[in-house]
Amino acid sequence: MHIYEVLRRPVITEKNTDLMDRNKFVFETEKKATKAQIKAAVEKVFGVTVVSVNVITVPRRPRGYGRLRGHRPAWKKAIVTLKPGDKIEVFEGV
């Protein structure tokens, strides 16, 4: 897996905005990515130092009823804690 394929997008929500005060930034990542890969990717892409990475696999959620039964896919969420003072530009101004 290429390093640039690891990070999908930043996840900006009300909750995650509050996390930023504690230097934690949240991404959606490739599902098969490991903590080590995520750490490397964030450090490479944003030029920051990552202190720790927590990941959660968000389970798929059923959507629809009757004949139209389906689900939202599962995805992997990574909460990346940066070294104090480091920032990620994509979240800038948030």
Partner: peptide, 15 residues
């Protein structure tokens, strides 16, 4: 998206 009504920060709203 991602915020309850009235909770989004200004910079995000502007965006």
């Amino acid at each position: 998206p991602g915020f309850r009504k009235g909770k989004a920060p200004r910079a995000l709203l502007e965006l």
